[in-house]
Design a protein around this nucleic acid. Structure first.
Length: 485
RNA sequence: GGCCCCAUCGUCUAGUCAGGUCUAGGACAUCAGGUUUUCAUCCUGAGAACAGGGGUUCGAAUCCCCUUGGGGUCACCA
């Protein structure tokens, strides 16, 4: 297909479980490629496997892709010029297609039982032969086949792969791929339940939808020759094929649920930002020229080239995703961040956006995941249990020193009229001077008294945001702890 | 096992197509410093890779071959 044509690309997830990170990975490249060329990104639902079908899955896929901003131009839910976009609703189309193939002699009915096929495979294994259908039903005369079909005999339709020669095609990333036809199995096109297999449905739909670029995972590379044969039997020009490397587990095997989180829902629930996940996925196989690895989708769209995707096999290591998530959190305006926290349900119970906004500046630099917000701000939204005495007494200090320091701090803060970081700073400095304590001997007990934790935000900000009354109250509670020790 | 794909720091990658500018660059992670009253952010620095062997060439991470390693696939799943 001409490289000048307007790209029409698609992803074709199967509704068989949770929305998969690999779907998003491939969708990202497809959608970006379409947008760059002013073309269309199509969502097709490949639901031809009735045994693995899950009713809730399709909706989850829609939701997850939209969460990521990977929305589509044509799809099952909002229509398009080639409806329907669900394969289970296109059975007539596949039937027509396969009839054409049977007429032209490129496909044939096969009446072999699954038992015979299984036995055949065992024999082939034992004899160390190539595994695959032996073509037994190829020889059945058309009239006989027709009669058996009419008598409702169980059958499938197979592709008649040429027994000699080779099939050649170009992969946009890997160059010319050639496979001997003797290596290619007579693929089942229509299953005995009347549903098409992926191979038929995929090619038939890609033709019907006018798909120009088939950008999909590398696991499909080896079955592409079958698709090429199908295109040519149907008299259709080939789309451009481009097979993206598979995401891997740490042991380099194909990414899997057992060894990695793969559900897009999981990432959302963990508090990853869509822009961070997208950024991370983009980096698995591509890198920007300017070496700035933190970027948004606009920048990606401006610089990405699908042909420049790397051929290596990237290990899905979320360490960098965590870093990216923190970076993207910090790039978000505070009001936007507060909105996200609320809409994604990461706000503590009873806390609203304005309240979150009060405390957000103090913790934004400490967040890696949105889900950490609640824990990191718990000292602010409710009074924590007073810290144990050992936390209130820094190393090399002692109980009396901590009590004196806290008392002095309480007193000084009490006397403060204007309560802001600007006034609190000098106020605490004077407390320090008067007591002649080492800095940590005052500040650490105070930090613990106010937040009950070591990793709190800047102390002046904490004092300020808590306000005079709550500060005094918490200091008193800690003094009580110390005095009863 | 057959067939197909792949191979640069621990990880993601730049460089490979058009061989020299590569004593191989960046990022994450790690470690060490700095900033900071804590944690984090931020800044500086360090260690860390061309799988191996042949060939072509004045010159190879880059081209060719072999080996090794890894992966995918060989379903009436996609």
């Amino acid at each position: 297909m001409s490289s000048h044509s307007i790209p029409r690309v698609r992803i074709a997830p199967s509704p068989t479980g949770d929305p998969h990170v690999g779907t998003a990975y491939v969708a990202l490249f497809n959608r970006t490629h379409a947008r760059q060329g002013g073309g269309q990104f199509i969502l097709r639902i490949d639901d031809t496997d009735r045994s693995r079908y899950q009713g809730t899955s399709e909706g989850q896929i829609f939701t997850a892709l939209r969460w990521l901003g990977l929305d589509w131009d044509e799809g099952p839910d909002d229509g398009g010029p080639h409806q329907p976009y669900r394969q289970s609703e296109r059975l007539d189309h596949y039937r027509q297609c396969v009839n054409k193939l049977i007429d032209s002699g490129d496909a044939y009915p096969c009446f072999c039982t699954e038992e015979r096929i299984a036995d055949l495979r065992e024999q082939q294994k034992a004899a160390k032969e190539r595994l695959g259908y032996d073509g037994a039903c190829r020889e059945i005369k058309k009239e006989e086949a027709q009669a058996r079909i009419e008598s409702a005999e169980t059958h499938v339709i197979r592709l008649k792969v040429p027994s000699t020669g080779e099939t050649v095609f170009e992969d946009a990333l890997r160059g010319e791929i050639r496979v001997a036809n003797s290596e290619i199995d007579d693929q089942i096109l229509i299953k005995s339940d009347g549903f098409p297999t992926y191979h038929l449905a995929n090619v038939a739909d890609d033709i019907a939808f006018g798909i120009t670029d088939v950008i999909r995972a590398e696991e499909w590379l080896i079955s592409t020759p079958k698709h090429v044969i199908l295109y040519s039997a149907l008299g259709e020009p080939l789309p451009r094929f481009l097979h993206v490397s598979l995401l891997r587990n740490a042991d380099k095997s194909k990414i899997s649920k057992r060894k990695n989180p793969v559900s897009l829902d999981w990432f959302r629930q963990q508090g990853y930002l869509p822009e961070a996940l997208l950024n991370f996925l983009a980096l698995m196989g591509w890198s920007p020229d300017d070496e700035n690895e933190v970027f948004d989708m606009q920048s990606f769209e401006d610089n990405f080239r699908v042909e420049s995707l790397s051929t290596g096999a990237p290990i899905f290591d979320m360490t960098k995703l965590d870093w990216l998530n923190g970076m993207h959190i910090r790039q978000l305006p505070l009001t936007e961040l507060a909105q996200r926290l609320e809409s994604e349900n990461f706000l503590p119970d009873g806390v609203d956006q304005p309240q979150a906004l009060e405390i957000l500046p103090l913790v934004i630099e400490r967040l890696t995941l949105l889900s950490e917000f609640t824990d990191k701000t718990s000292w602010f939204f409710s009074q924590p249990a007073p810290p144990p005495a050992e936390d209130l007494i820094p190393k090399k200090s002692d109980r009396d020193t901590s009590m004196a320091a806290l008392s002095a701090a309480a007193e000084a803060l009490q006397a403060l009229d204007e309560f802001s970081p600007d006034t609190i700073g000098p106020c605490l400095d004077s407390v320090l001077d008067k007591g002649a304590w080492k800095k940590p001997f005052l500040f650490m007990p105070l930090r613990f008294a106010l937040t009950s934790r070591r990793d709190s935000p800047d102390l002046l900000e904490v004092v300020s945001v808590l306000g005079k009354d709550r500060c005094i109250e918490r200091i008193q509670s800690s003094l009580k702890v110390l005095s009863t020790t």
